[in-house]
């Protein structure tokens, strides 16, 4: 990582994270690294490191975090928050950070695609006649889509 210039840091970032639902605990971190030790993603890809992400967030490295690829590598297994001695819900903190990135349109394309599917079908998979006929052959009830509700909720 390149040298950190203190003048470029954004001290408000940690407060923005803490204001998101689930982001409240971030300021309690005392950097023990239990989260990183418990993280199955860190074990296979060192780009993703929970403790490092928290330190970056607390320092206010907003741009480096929001425009990074690594924040999207969290598998949301909740392993980190189960072991945190400070009760930081780090999985939820990661969702808060990803939400802030998404608000600035820094999102992997697959995720925006899922949003469009929900607006169009109310589900990740379209229910066609083919699907319902297959279900009926196995004695299972037909399924209906409710795209109007999902479209209304998601605006």
């Amino acid at each position: 990582m390149s040298r950190i210039n203190l003048n470029d840091l954004d001290p408000s970032f940690k407060h923005r994270v803490a204001e998101q639902p689930g982001g409240q605990g971030i300021k309690a971190c005392f950097a023990c690294k239990a989260c990183t030790a418990a993280c199955p993603i860190t074990a296979v890809d060192a780009r993703y490191d929970p403790r490092k992400i928290i330190r970056m967030a607390l320092l206010g490295m907003t741009e480096e975090i929001l425009h990074s690829d690594f924040i999207w590598l969290c598998s949301s297994c909740y392993g980190c928050q189960e072991v945190c001695p400070q009760n930081v819900s780090f999985t939820e903190v990661m969702f808060a950070i990803k939400n802030l990135a998404a608000a600035e349109a820094c999102v992997p394309p697959g995720l925006t695609g899922q949003r469009l599917l929900l607006k169009a079908h109310g589900r990740l998979y379209e229910i066609s006649d083919f699907e319902n006929e297959k279900r009926e052959k196995m004695g299972l009830p037909r399924i209906k889509e409710h795209p109007e509700d999902y479209d209304a909720l998601l605006g």
Binding site: Q20, P21, G22, W72, S76, F95, A96, K98, N99, A102, A103, V107, L111, T112, Q114, R115, L118, G122, R123, L124, I143, K144, E145, H146, D149, Y150, L154
Partner: peptide
């Protein structure tokens, strides 16, 4: 018949 997606796929975009 009114149930749909639980909402999980959107959690990274907007909790």
């Amino acid at each position: 018949e009114d149930f749909g997606c639980c909402g999980y796929p959107l959690k990274s975009l907007d909790v």
